[in-house]
Lab assay of single mutants.
Amino acid sequence: YKIYPYDSLIVTNSISVKLPKDVDRTRLERHLSPEEFQEVFGMSIEEFDRLALWKRNDLKKKALLF
């Protein structure tokens, strides 16, 4: 996945969300650098992957990456 800054990946309720063209809309968190991922989620990507799907989705919603 290509890395993008968190600010360019957050999704708000506005209709005209302009995400970069090559971003996987269903896995926005994968486009964060490991350092920024840790900062946003408070855990590593590996720890995040071990969580239940509902928990990952809940965290993504709170981080505006859903």
Rank of each mutant, 00 (worst) to 15 (best):
E29N: 01
I10L: 08
S8C: 13
F41P: 00
A63L: 06
W54E: 13
Q38A: 12
I15H: 15
K62F: 06
Y4E: 02
Y1G: 08
D7A: 15
K21V: 13
M43W: 03
L32G: 00
L9P: 01
F48P: 00
P20Y: 04
V11P: 06
L65R: 01
L51Q: 07
D7Q: 15
P5E: 05
T26A: 13
F41T: 00
K18N: 15
D24E: 06
K60I: 03
L19T: 08
V17Q: 15
I15F: 08
F48Q: 00
E39L: 14
F37C: 03
S33V: 04
V40L: 07
T12G: 13
K2L: 10
L53Y: 09
K55S: 08
E29P: 01
F48A: 00
D49Q: 08
F37L: 02
D7T: 15
P5I: 03
W54H: 13
K18L: 12
E47R: 08
W54P: 11
D49T: 06
L32I: 07
L51R: 03
F37Y: 02
T12S: 13
L28E: 01
E35R: 10
P34K: 14
S33L: 04
S33R: 05
K62L: 09
K2Y: 07
D58K: 12
V11C: 11
T26M: 14
I10F: 04
V11R: 08
K2A: 14
A52C: 12
E29T: 01
I45E: 05
I3A: 05
R56G: 03
N13G: 13
N57G: 05
F66I: 09
E36I: 06
E46V: 13
E46D: 13
P34C: 09
D7K: 15
S8W: 14
R30Q: 06
R50S: 12
I45K: 07
I15Q: 15
T26E: 14
K2V: 14
M43V: 05
T26Q: 13
A52N: 09
I10V: 10
R25H: 12
E36T: 07
R56N: 02
E39D: 12
S14R: 11
R30K: 09
I45A: 08
L32K: 00
I45N: 08
L32P: 00
R56L: 02
P5K: 05
H31S: 03
L59E: 03
Y6W: 04
Y1P: 15
Y4C: 03
D49N: 09
G42T: 07
K21D: 15
L19W: 09
Y1S: 09
A52E: 14
K60F: 02
D7N: 14
K62V: 08
R50H: 10
I10E: 02
S44R: 12
D22P: 03
V11A: 08
E47Q: 13
I3L: 06
F48L: 03
K55G: 04
N57S: 07
G42K: 13
V40F: 04
A63I: 03
F66Y: 15
R25N: 07
S33I: 05
A63C: 04
V40M: 04
L28F: 02
D22Y: 05
T26G: 10
D58C: 14
N13D: 13
P34G: 09
I45L: 13
L65C: 02
P34F: 11
Q38P: 03
L19V: 07
D24S: 05
F37E: 00
R50D: 10
L28K: 03
D22G: 08
P20W: 04
L51T: 04
L32D: 00
E35D: 10
S8K: 13
L28A: 03
D24I: 06
V23W: 02
S14K: 10
H31D: 01
Y4R: 00
T26K: 10
F66S: 08
M43H: 03
L59V: 03
K21F: 10
R30C: 05
N13A: 11
N57F: 08
R50K: 14
R27S: 09
L64I: 04
S8T: 13
K2C: 08
F66N: 06
F41D: 00
I10H: 04
E46W: 09
L9W: 01
K61L: 08
V23P: 02
I10D: 02
F41M: 06
A63F: 07
M43I: 07
R25V: 15
K55H: 12
K60T: 02
A63V: 10
L64Q: 12
D7F: 14
L32V: 03
K18A: 14
Y4G: 01
G42F: 09
T12K: 10
K61Q: 08
E47W: 07
Y4D: 01
K55C: 11
D24M: 05
W54R: 10
P5A: 08
E36M: 05
L59C: 04
P34S: 12
D7P: 08
